[in-house]
Every structure is written in C-alpha cells, then in structure tokens.
C-alpha cells in the first residue's frame, strides 16, 4: 500500500437480503483516502454512499454483508490492517472502531442516548480503548469540549442531550468521535439536519480539527456545495457504483460522466440568471433492487450511445487520477484501469 494512503477499498461489494431478493447496495467500489485529506462521496439517496462507509467499520445491519473486496487500513507507514477480514463484532474490529476510525452521523439527536449525560457518553469511548483514570478522562473531555467551541464545558459535561441545541449536539457527536484522536473520521451527512449558519460553523470546525490533528475525513453528502468547499477528492456514486472519481478541481471543472455534469448543473447557484432553465435529470432515482442490463444511468442519460445497453462500462482512467465509468470514453485515449 502506498504510504500516503490511510484507507484503501478495493472492489467492495456489499449486498442486503430483503426477503428473497438480494439488493446490491455497493457494487465494485474502489477508492482510497489520503493521509490528512478529505474524500467526498456524493450521490442521491439510495446510491450506496452510506453503506460504503458503514462497510469500512462493519456497521452493517444483520441482513447486509460484505461479499467481496478488501478494505485495508494503515494507521501509520508500515502498519496495515485488513478490515474486511475481521468478523462483524469481533474484538479486532471493535478495537478499530472509535479509536482508529470513528463516525459522525446525520441526526445528532437520535445518535445520542437521552438518559445519559454527555460526559458519560464521551467517557465511555475513552474507557473502552484506553487505560485512564476517571479524573484524567474528565479533564481530557473538558479540554476537548472547550476546543470544540462548547461554552462552559465543566457545566455542560453533566448536561443531558436534550439541553443542547442541534448545532451543539453535533459538536458533542464530534467530541465523541474525536476523543481518541482517530486517524480517520467518517462524517455521514454531518450537516444535513442543521441550518445554513450552523452548517457553516460545523464545517469550519471540521476543517480546524483536520488542521490540528491531521485526521483524514470521508465526507458523505448530497450537497455539491459542501463538496466543493470541504473536499480534496470526490467520488460520485450512482446505484452502488462510483461513476466518477478524481481530484476536486478535475471533477468539478471538467466533469466527464453525464451524471456528474447534470448533477452540477441541476443545482441553482446563488446569483444564477433566473431566466436560465435548470438542467434536470429525467425520470426517477431508481430503486436499489432494480436490475439493469447495461449502464445503470442509461435510462436517464442524455448522451446515450449504442454500447450503453450492452453491459456495465469499465473504469477508464482518462487523466492521471481522474477515473470515469462511462462508455463514452472507451477508445478515446486513456488507459484501462490497472
């Protein structure tokens, strides 16, 4: 594994059993997260972006399982764990969760336990992973809360979740995630439930954390604006596959996949001329259990060609580091993946 890479996913396939059907939530996903950088995963609801992230720490429900692919995690150069080999809820994966890789979820209210004080909930992580006295833990948590911009942390330590506002609760969630100084932070729609002004606060806080601790971040979102602002690399997902993957500037300034370019042009930008009609993608977002012969996006695509119905397009590296999964780029120079 490259020494700059903290997490690499190769050919990940995660499926869910729903009754007698099998839903392929994540299909052949390969990506890597660089040390101290932010990778954004964008896509609409049901595209598999959350499942990809949950697969990393094996936080899948009982009906879901990883059936193919490897997930490698390297906390420092020379050290490597193969996360996909660990069993669900095994001791090994539990020692990774929270300590090495931690998560922030979308809705801070439902991810905090209403009957424990926030101090207790943050403490729990520390006692699980570190040998630390109660007093030391308390001191460390209060320091962290102060750093995360929670006023009067000594008092707040003994408060219950309902005594916090939405933005403050999300800060508490970040405290829980950051208390063990993880190497990788997975933020699953961290600001979707928040107002714009609070969203700006949380995003700037996450930027500061990254600067101070050198944490790598996987940021899952559906908002192209947040991606443009906070990420270094982007993976665009559609129906369980990564359709475009590359550095932020390349994907945003030169979107290759028809889905990416349509997505970028379908959101109104502040100051847009009101007479321009928004580009919309026709049809509906497909259901995860739909099975497609060819490219999943072909029923909604405007640039359809004769290959599109034939089969899944392979990954094509068009420029260095800029990959796309579309038949349009077959035979247009570039090279096959690997």
């Amino acid at each position: 594994m490259n020494k700059d890479i903290v997490l690499s996913i190769d050919g990940l396939k995660t499926q869910f059993k729903v009754g007698k059907r099998i839903v392929h939530a994540v299909n052949d996903v390969s990506l890597s997260v660089k040390r101290g950088k932010t990778l954004g995963i964008v896509g609409e609801s049901g595209c598999g972006k959350s499942v990809t992230a949950h697969s990393v720490v094996q936080l899948l429900p009982k009906t879901g399982n990883i059936c193919k692919g490897t997930i490698k995690y390297s906390p420092e150069v020379g050290k490597e764990y193969v996360l996909s080999d660990y069993k669900r809820d095994s001791k090994e994966i539990r020692s990774i969760r929270g300590k090495h890789i931690s998560m922030i979820f979308q809705d801070p209210l439902s991810s905090l336990d209403p009957v424990y004080t926030i101090g207790k909930q943050i403490e729990e992580i520390l006692f699980e992973h570190e040998k630390i006295s109660k007093n030391e833990a308390r001191k460390r948590i209060i320091d962290l809360l102060a750093k995360l911009g929670i006023p009067k942390p000594e008092e707040r330590y003994n408060h219950y979740p309902h005594q916090f506002s939405g933005g403050m609760k999300q800060r508490v969630m970040i405290a829980i995630a950051m208390v063990c100084n993880p190497k990788l932070l997975i933020a699953d729609e961290p600001t979707t439930a928040l107002d714009v002004t609070i969203q700006a606060q949380i995003l700037s806080l996450m930027r500061d954390i990254q600067k101070d601790y050198g944490t790598s971040i996987i940021l899952i979102t559906h908002n192209m604006g947040i991606v443009a602002e906070a990420c270094d690399e982007v993976a665009v997902m559609y129906m369980g596959r990564i359709v475009e993957y590359g550095p932020l500037e390349k994907v945003f300034n030169n979107p290759l996949h028809p889905y990416t370019s349509a997505l970028l042009r379908s959101v109104p930008v502040l100051g847009i001329d009101k007479n321009t009609e928004l580009r919309s993608i026709r049809g509906n977002t497909p259901d995860g259990s739909d099975v497609f012969q060819g490219c999943e996006f072909s029923p909604r695509c405007d640039q359809i060609c004769q290959h599109c119905k034939d089969g899944h397009p392979p990954v094509r590296v068009v420029e260095e580091g800029h990959e796309v999964r579309c038949w349009l780029y077959e035979g247009s120079g570039g090279s096959d993946h690997k």
Partner: peptide, 17 residues
C-alpha cells in the same frame, strides 16, 4: 455567505455567526 457554492475555489470571506 454561509451557503456553500458548488464551484471550486469559490471560498470567499465567510461570516460565521
């Protein structure tokens, strides 16, 4: 100023309340 813009390099002066 708090609205994230889907344009690379649009990070302008942000007023954080």
């Amino acid at each position: 100023s708090a609205v994230p813009m889907p344009v690379v390099g649009a990070k302008s002066e942000r007023i954080i309340l």
